[in-house]
Computed example of a mutant assay.
Amino acid sequence: MAPEKAVYVIVVEGFADWEPAHALAELRRHGQYRVESVGLTLATVESMGGIQVLPSTSVAKVDTADVAALILPGGDRWENSPVEPELEQLLNDLDAQGTPIAAICAATVAIARLGLLRGRRHTSNGLEYLRSNVPGYAESANYVDSPAVRDHGLITASGLGDVEFARELLEELNVLSVEDRATWASIFRSARLPGGAA
């Protein structure tokens, strides 16, 4: 039986299309989640890889009661643009109600600027990366040098940690068993099937 809620992914111009791909595929395949693509508007956007995506809804129309988790892929825009007020409101509302938020690569800059990292273990593309892109960043004591980190409903990951990012989302939403999640991550990280066959 499919879950009642959906996994929402933010799609903005230039989003890093490969970063949420493992997570979305496995949450849909093994978790039976619907996937909703969320734009700032309903206009088509082009991903970093040139894929044209027509959002299924807009940030302003998201029903927070329908969100099982929200994924923010990376992309250069997060380093260079402020977070739009309506997206900031959505993220704060979801965080307040305990809905998981998952940010990877440069999207960690966006959530750091909004204060969502405060008091939580987290990672990014490096500690200096966060310091240089987030004026006033003061959470270095909670920074973990790891491909992906999950703490109190917040998942963060390096841009090189898409497999680990997906594994943390699978764990947060209790999709697959502990053993199957570990096996899945090992296969995709090592490019080897169990037993050593490539």
Rank of each mutant, 00 (worst) to 15 (best):
V7C: 11
A16E: 15
L27F: 06
P20R: 03
V9E: 06
L27W: 07
A16Y: 04
V35K: 09
R34M: 06
A21V: 09
A23L: 07
P20V: 01
G31M: 14
H22T: 09
A16R: 01
H22F: 15
V12L: 11
V9C: 13
E19V: 00
H22S: 13
V35T: 13
L27I: 10
A21N: 08
A25P: 00
F15L: 04
L24H: 08
I10C: 05
R34L: 11
R34W: 11
Y8P: 11
G14K: 04
E36A: 15
E19S: 05
Y33C: 09
Y33K: 07
E13F: 02
R28E: 12
D17F: 09
R28K: 12
V9Y: 05
V9W: 03
A21Q: 07
R34P: 10
H22I: 13
E26A: 14
V12P: 00
Q32V: 01
D17H: 10
E19K: 01
F15P: 01
R29I: 06
A25T: 13
Y33L: 07
H30P: 00
V12C: 04
G14D: 05
Q32T: 10
Q32Y: 13
V12T: 04
Y33M: 08
P20I: 01
I10Y: 12
R28P: 02
V11W: 05
L27D: 08
H30C: 12
E19F: 06
W18F: 12
A21L: 06
Y8H: 15
G31W: 11
V12W: 00
H30A: 12
W18A: 11
F15S: 03
G31L: 11
I10Q: 02
V12F: 05
V35E: 14
I10H: 10
P20Y: 07
E26R: 15
R28T: 15
E26Q: 11
R29S: 11
F15M: 05
F15A: 03
L24R: 10
R34H: 12
G31Q: 05
A23D: 09
H22W: 04
R34S: 14
E13T: 08
R29Y: 04
V11K: 02
Y33G: 07
Y8I: 00
E36Q: 14
V9P: 02
A23H: 05
W18V: 02
V9Q: 05
E26L: 13
H22K: 00
Y33I: 08
L24W: 00
G14A: 00
F15H: 03
E19R: 01
W18D: 11
H22Y: 15
G31R: 07
R34F: 04
V12M: 05
V35I: 15
Q32W: 13
R29P: 00
A23K: 07
L27G: 12
Y33T: 06
E26D: 12
W18P: 00
V9R: 02
V35C: 10
I10E: 04
V12H: 02
R34E: 15
F15N: 00
H30Q: 13
E13A: 07
R28S: 14
Y33E: 07
I10S: 06
Y8V: 06
